[in-house]
């Protein structure tokens, strides 16, 4: 189906979103660095001098909002629908993680404000030896 925005402008299609399932962002490598950890802890209201790595730190290693063209072509903007962090090995200061965001599913719904698409993105964060550290599932909404 083809969607229109509030001005009647035709935007991207849900079919295009469905066809994009399996899309991946570029692989990235991130390191839990002391300065970044301090900035993140300060931003979330934690003691900035603490060295414990918050469970949500991998949010910083996601590409947000996702850059998938089919998503950007659908609707006018992003809303965050939900986040799930599964911790298999807690991250520590100095850890290097490799990750790649994958688009895994799309669902179209009619809400109070019109048609929207629920998009699911999965990202696995692995240590250099391949150990899965964190799996993140993000539900992002385009409307």
């Amino acid at each position: 189906m083809t969607d229109t925005d509030d001005t009647g402008t035709v935007t991207g299609s849900f079919e295009a979103l469905q066809a994009a399932v399996g899309w991946t962002a570029e692989q990235r490598v991130d390191v839990v660095e002391r300065r970044h950890l301090r900035d993140y802890r300060r931003a979330i209201g934690a003691d900035e001098d603490g060295t414990d790595v918050p469970v949500t730190i991998t949010a910083c290693f996601l590409t947000e909002p996702p850059t998938m063209p089919e998503a950007l072509a659908y609707g006018m903007g992003w809303i965050n629908g939900g986040d799930r962090f599964e911790v298999h090995r807690p991250l520590q200061l100095g850890d290097e993680v490799t990750s790649q965001l994958t688009f895994t599913g799309a669902q179209e719904k009619v809400g109070r404000t019109g048609t929207l698409a629920l998009l699911t993105f999965v990202t696995e964060f692995r240590l250099p030896d391949g150990t899965l550290a964190v799996r993140h599932v993000g539900t992002r909404v385009r409307r």
Binding site: A43, I44, G45, A46, T56, G82, R84, F85, E86, V87
Partner: peptide
């Protein structure tokens, strides 16, 4: 949204500090 999730993660982490660690946070 992810800042609110970070607040929730911090709340739980500080609540259980030294006694446990979060394995799943799902919002």
């Amino acid at each position: 949204g992810l800042l609110k999730t970070a607040w929730l993660g911090r709340l739980v982490e500080e609540w259980f500090a030294g006694r446990g660690a979060i394995t799943v946070l799902d919002v």
